[in-house]
Design a binder for these strands. Structure first.
Lengths: 237, 237
DNA sequence: TCAAAAGTGTTTCAAGTACACCCATGA
DNA sequence: TCATGGGTGTACTTGAAACACTTTTGA
């Protein structure tokens, strides 16, 4: 009962652009490949889509394999499929980007893969078209985050106002006026102030906040601009 | 020199959501399938990615085959790949959306396919998950068009102000205040007013405009909101 | 002359932007 | 006590929104 038996089949892969934030700069998680081809070169974490799983499922599986994390914010980014993007085999790859709290990853300490965090614009040479994948994901991240408050996925559950503004400054490579930014943020009613303070990063200490989950869900399908319009250049897709 | 010979291969298809605008409502172009499976049912125009072409190339080829049009605005929408989305075979499909000037299509009159335009929310039952594809593409179109002036791709080269506002009203299903909308549009310097008038749609006639191509290219990578913020709900990706 | 669509201006209000100082604390 | 980062308020400017009437012309 197969109908398409004369049609060509292809290898279908997924590659994950894993974003993290260390408090200062936006980072990506790369691995040193342990298999051929291109063994021992740096690359994105990837793998092949299996017959019994969807591409989204494959991406989650692969992210879990590397980081031990589940239920992570993840989104399809783009399909890369030029005939000779890999030299030996024809592989079409779907790229995904994931946003994770870098600190949760750090106590995983995966032995299986040689993985390392790199600043978003200071990483080693990568195989195939993985640089294009990263650039596309970066544009998509900026574009999406200009409309939706997804960047909170990069922060721990409890975070401070300075952390958020540092994050936005890192993602967009801009300088933010903290007074205006904080006001806009607070006026969204998205944040709940805790009594507790973070004393790690300053002497005075900065108050912790958490997301108001109900409001957050609404914002996911609503318009909210967290950035001044002049910062929104080159957002791609 | 193949490295991945134990990995599974899959059929990889593309499906095109072809948007057109008839002056009143947003339309999509559907075909009646001339082949098994699901012969004689309505569906999106699609086809398989060939070994010597990229997915983007496949989408362009398929669009050309149906419409005779080339150099059309086209964008990757999303990948659909649940294991059993087609009953008999495992097919992963990349959906694309295209924006075409419906009038250019109309003098093509393709005999090869039984194709027909349908209003965007009034089309027949479709095979597989093509309805999901259309909904995803619709959300993406709205989201993208809220930031970039891509909807002009749906209009003829010369168009009138009432045509543009009808188009935005159709895409977002809103009612627009023409005075505010026209002012915003004109203040973008994106439009060049011609001396000529369109007399087909009214007695008084409406002036034609064309896009200022240089400004247009800049807007493609710049921020410009053509819509009131309250209209921007449910824009998905 | 009238019906039908095109085109035009002003006021009000909300949001964005620019800008500078005091506060709390640990070293 | 001082160096460091956290936090707060106001005036100004720009853009968004609400709103109604006149113009043109073919039938």
């Amino acid at each position: 009962m197969e109908h398409y038996k004369d049609e060509p089949k292809t290898l279908l892969a997924v590659d994950c652009i894993i974003f993290g934030f260390n408090g200062e700069s936006l980072q990506i998680l790369l691995i040193k490949r342990g298999f051929e081809p291109e063994i021992n070169k740096w690359s994105l974490m990837g793998g092949f889509v299996q017959p019994d799983e969807s591409p989204d499922g494959a991406a989650s599986r692969i992210l879990f394999k590397l980081t031990g994390l589940q239920d992570v914010y993840m989104e399809q980014s783009a399909v890369f499929g030029k005939p000779h993007r890999e030299k030996m085999d024809r592989v079409v790859s779907i790229s995904y980007f994931a946003l994770i709290d870098i600190r949760e990853y750090q106590h995983i300490n995966s032995q299986e893969f040689k993985a390392k965090w790199f600043p978003i614009d200071e990483y080693p040479e990568l195989i195939f078209d993985h640089v294009d994948m990263i650039n596309t994901a970066k544009r998509l991240l900026r574009s999406k985050a200009a409309l939706y408050p997804i960047l909170f996925e990069l922060l721990p559950e409890k975070f401070t106002l300075p952390q958020i503004s540092n994050l936005y400054e890192a993602v967009y490579e801009i300088v933010i006026d903290k007074r205006n930014f904080n006001r806009k943020l607070l006026s969204s009613n998205l944040l709940i102030k805790l009594k507790e303070k973070d004393r790690e990063n300053s002497k005075k200490g900065a108050f912790f906040f958490v997301i108001d989950k109900d409001v957050y869900k609404e914002h996911i399908v609503t318009f909210l601009r967290f950035l001044p319009s002049w910062s929104a250049q080159d957002m791609g897709k």
